[in-house]
Structure formats: C-alpha cells, structure tokens
C-alpha cells in the first residue's frame, strides 16, 4: 500500500537568536491524508506550520512539496508555488482583511495567481460560499458582519479557492465556541473528502486532532517525541508525555494515569538529554546525560524515550 507523498519535511529547525523554537522535525504526509501536530503552547507547533509554508524562514532542514524543495525556491518561485499550499489561521477575526468584501476575499487568491477570467473567479467564489454553507448574500458583506464561525468558514473558502494540494490549518477552531468548533470541523472533513486535499493540522486539543487526523505527531519543546497512526497514539501511547497528555483529556478514564504537572520549560534553556525529563515521572540518570533517539515501535509508531530501551531489554 504505497501512496504518493505530498509533503515531506526533514530536519526542520528554527532558532530565533538563542531560542530554539523547532528542533530537527521530520514527518511526511501522503496525498489526501491529514497529519496532526499536538502539544502544549510553546511546543513549536505553530512555528512548524509557518516553516512548512516558508512564512518563517527555516534555519535548517528540507521541505519537499510536490517533488520540489521549497527551501531552495526564490521568493518569486515561492510566491507562485503558494497557489498549491494555503493556510487557515487560528484567529478568524485577524486573518481576514476588514476592508475587503467576502467577494474580494475569495477572488483575491485566484486573481493574484491568474486563475481563470474575472467571471470564472466570481463563479468559483460563489461555489465556495455554497460549499461552506454561507448564503450568496454574504458575497457583498464585510468580515465584521459575520460571527467567528462564519468568518472561519470564509477563511476555509479562501484557502480552497486556488484548489490547493496542501492546506495547513493552525489551530483553526480553538478561537471558536465549542458548538461552532464541531460545525467547522465537520465542514473541514467533508471538504477534504470532496477535494482530496492533504492537510497539516495543528491543535493543542487532542479530541480535535483525534477527529481530524490520520497520523499524529506529538511535539514537546520544538521536537516530535512520538509519532504514529491515530489509533496507535490514542490506544497505545508509548512516550510518557503522550500518556500524560491523554490523561489530561477530560472524559472517561481520566485520572487513571499521571497528569502533567508544572509548565513547559523555556526554549531559551532546553534541558540536557531528554527535553521532557524535568517533568517526566519516570526520569532516571540516563535521561539527563543522553538524548533519546527516535525508535520504531511497530505499526508505523515511533517514539524517543529511553524507557523503550529498558522495555525492549527486559
């Protein structure tokens, strides 16, 4: 069962002066699949999303998208390539231009990439509006006239307007009310099914990621500490951080496992060895002296923890 890889990221790193925001992140997303990045705030998820789209310049690493290495493209090549990769932002109040009507907002991406005639662009805008279940009358309205959920649907329509291969969604529902979240998530899944879009989905909410994603990467302090198919991550987490995150999900069974205490350390001063050792209930000497390597667990699941060595040795 081999599928074409749409996006493949390897060794992606970003430092802002002394702050190591993202460290050596690697993952690949097959065409039409959704890869989720989860982690607490400050874990580098959003920076990773921006690095993938080169909205932030990576310090190191390769981003292979549609067979080309994005990190080597010139700014004009990159701008043209943006047609095939779009982003949905967290804040539906901030990501839309308040001075542009919905019509202009939806036509804009097609216009700047020279897709179709003006009439075709408008037709696409109308079709997209219908796809995100907004009435045609919304075309001539401005962002401030919509609720948060409606705005986010406009942002989704905008992201789809160039018919992109990849959509990066950075916490697309965390600014919305819970009831609206559900609606937007349903919509995103329907649209993804219909358009066959590949998606990189960022969220701190494990339930949202579980609903949306095929494969999941758990991030801690700028690194992916565990990654694998959704059901493996949820049913058989192997990294102590993943376990702790799952234990913090409200609902049945919570409290059975140790919850996470304390706060994520500053990215200014990443702990030696394993970055998680300062909060890990199972930390031992080796964790502070040696950085655990990513190791295969099976069924496509991988994690970086010395405990796995112990388990295997035993």
């Amino acid at each position: 069962m081999t599928t074409e890889t749409m996006l493949s990221v390897s060794g992606l790193s970003k430092s802002f002066k002394s702050v190591k925001a993202v460290r050596d992140v690697s993952f690949a997303i097959p065409r039409g699949k959704t890869f989720g990045l989860v982690g607490e705030s400050g874990s580098g998820k959003s920076t990773t999303a921006r690095l993938v789209l080169r909205l932030v310049e990576p310090s190191a690493g390769k981003i292979a998208f549609r067979g080309r290495d994005l990190s080597t493209l010139s700014s004009s090549e990159l701008r043209r390539e943006r047609r095939h990769m779009q982003m949905i932002f967290q804040d539906p109040f901030g990501s839309l231009n308040p001075r542009m009507s919905v019509r202009d907002t939806l036509v804009e991406p097609q216009f700047v990439h020279g897709i179709g005639t003006a009439a075709e662009q408008l037709k696409t805008a109308e079709r997209l509006l219908a796809e995100v279940s907004l009435p045609r009358a919304a075309l001539d309205r401005y962002p401030h006239e919509f609720s948060g959920g409606q705005r986010q649907r406009i942002a989704i329509a905008r992201a789809l307007s160039t018919n992109p291969d990849l959509i990066v969604a950075d916490e697309p529902v965390s600014a919305l009310d819970v009831s609206v979240q559900a609606q937007v998530l349903n919509l995103m899944r329907d649209l993804q099914d219909r358009h066959g879009t590949t998606m990189l989905f960022i969220s701190h909410d494990l339930r949202v990621v579980q609903f949306m994603c095929d494969e999941i990467g758990v991030m801690y302090l700028g690194e992916i500490v565990e990654q694998g198919p959704r059901d493996r991550i949820y049913n058989a987490p192997s990294h102590p951080y993943t376990k702790a995150l799952l234990a913090s999900v409200p609902g049945k069974g919570s409290g059975q496992r140790a919850r996470l205490s304390g706060e994520i350390p500053s990215a200014h001063a990443v702990p030696s060895g394993c970055a998680f050792r300062t909060r890990c209930p199972h930390a031992f000497e080796r964790c502070s002296s040696e950085k655990p390597a990513m190791r295969e667990i099976g069924n496509g699941q991988r994690a970086a923890c010395h405990l796995l060595d112990k388990a295997m040795a035993a």
Partner: peptide, 15 residues
Amino acid sequence: SVTQATSPDRLTGGD
C-alpha cells in the same frame, strides 16, 4: 483506552 479509539463520524453543534 482513555478516549474512544475510533472517532465519531459527525460532531454535533451549530452556528
């Protein structure tokens, strides 16, 4: 498992 292994088909809610 802590959470449901298989996610629901639809989530409920509206705007």
